[in-house]
Simulated assay, not measured.
Amino acid sequence: MEINKDYIWNYLKNSDLPIILYGMGDGADKVLSAFKKYGITASGVMASDDFVRGQSFHEFTVKKLSDFENEYSDFIIALCFATQLPDVMQNIFEIAKKHKVIVPSVPAFGDILFDEEFAKKNKESITSARNLLADDLSVKVFDNILEFYKTGELSLLDGITTDKDEAFSLLSLGENETYVDLGAYNGDTVDEFLHYTNGKYKFITALEPNAKNYSKLQAHCSEMKNLELWQLGAYSHNTTLCFNNKAGRNSAIVNESNTKTPVAAVDTILCGRAATYVKADVEGADFETILGMKNTLKMFKPKLNFSAYHRFEDIFRLPLLISGINPEYKIYLRHHPYIPAWDTNLYCI
């Protein structure tokens, strides 16, 4: 299968083949919006066989892959959803053996697209951030992820995908950690932390902004000691913001919503107390969250586990910000199994 090395938007615009969107929902909405911006025309929408029931998406009737195989001699599939499920990812790779599968670069949050203008504008910052990375694998992950954003080539994820055990070996968590969990969801990342500390710790502070998730977090941690829970989002300062009120992991800050949610700076929450390990999955507020923990980073240099994929600029602006606050950090970048390049995280020690 031909490897694309051009910006994905140019590649798709200049192709003579029909372009079939694979997936429905927010991801496909964002892809279609980008198509409109760049003058790209979609020819249809497909879903996995089990999900096709004659429904419509935008002006298209959703069809099976086999329907398009009967209709066209050849076509390009533009993947429009995210998954970390092994069987779904395997199915995507199997489809890619028969047809050109490409992943349009649309952000998880915000509306800034990765295109030639974006790359040129941020060239200096990209180079500076790359130079901060602590090992060869981090550099390879950095290069491949940026090239993936540019071209949408699935093969770029091969060879840079590692499991969480390898990343946590870098963090080397002990049994006397003071852990701050930002975006604690239902307690699963508290469990992850306990897994790597043999169930032992000094203290846990966990924040979760969504009311339903917070109730689950409370129930999950009801038997635990040396723990404080806050129904708050993490941010650069203490205020009240609008959240989208989505359940699951997708509770995030939006411009307009009826759900007013308090947010706070980590420095305010800790009030000068030490932290030894901070994990953050704050759905697009990662930069602001780091701004809100400057004192903690300067004074205590906790080990960090931060998502670096919610916005395209996070992969370079977060390392620059962290290093600017405390240049003693060694910064590692790892990508864990996910399509597209989600679950790409910074591990700082």
Rank of each mutant, 00 (worst) to 15 (best):
F35G: 12
L318E: 01
D188C: 10
L12W: 00
T161S: 06
A47V: 01
V52I: 06
F316D: 02
L321M: 13
K212M: 10
K97W: 14
T162E: 14
A96T: 07
C348N: 06
E71R: 15
N238K: 07
I290Q: 04
K30T: 09
S33L: 10
E2I: 01
D343I: 10
A280E: 08
K150T: 00
G199F: 11
C80E: 01
G183P: 02
V52P: 01
N131S: 15
S215H: 08
S56Y: 11
C271E: 15
L291R: 07
S66T: 13
K30A: 09
K164M: 09
V88P: 07
I3G: 03
L170V: 15
S323Q: 07
A119P: 01
L32G: 00
E116L: 14
C221K: 01
E192P: 02
P107I: 06
H58R: 12
I322C: 04
L182A: 12
Y179M: 12
V52W: 04
C242Q: 11
A275I: 09
G183Q: 06
D87I: 06
V266L: 15
Y309A: 02
Y338P: 00
E177Q: 15
Q90V: 01
K98E: 12
V139G: 08
R53S: 04
P107V: 00
I349A: 08
K140R: 14
R273F: 12
G44I: 01
K150H: 00
S172A: 15
F60W: 13
L146R: 13
I76V: 12
K37W: 11
F203V: 03
A252Q: 14
P18H: 08
V263Y: 03
E228F: 07
G54P: 05
N305H: 14
G233K: 01
A47H: 00
R311T: 02
V190S: 02
L21Q: 02
T162I: 08
I253M: 11
W342C: 07
L318K: 03
G233F: 03
K36W: 05
E166D: 12
P302V: 08
S307K: 06
A247R: 11
T127A: 15
T151N: 03
E124P: 14
D181L: 05
N4C: 09
L79K: 13
I112T: 13
N226I: 06
P262N: 15
T205Y: 10
L304S: 10
I331S: 04
N255H: 12
D26M: 08
N258L: 10
Q90E: 12
F316W: 13
L113D: 02
S169Y: 12
E223C: 02
L146F: 04
P337C: 07
A341C: 11
I315F: 05
T161N: 08
K164T: 10
L32F: 11
F75T: 04
I112S: 03
V266E: 06
G233T: 09
F193W: 11
V180P: 00
R311S: 02
D49H: 11
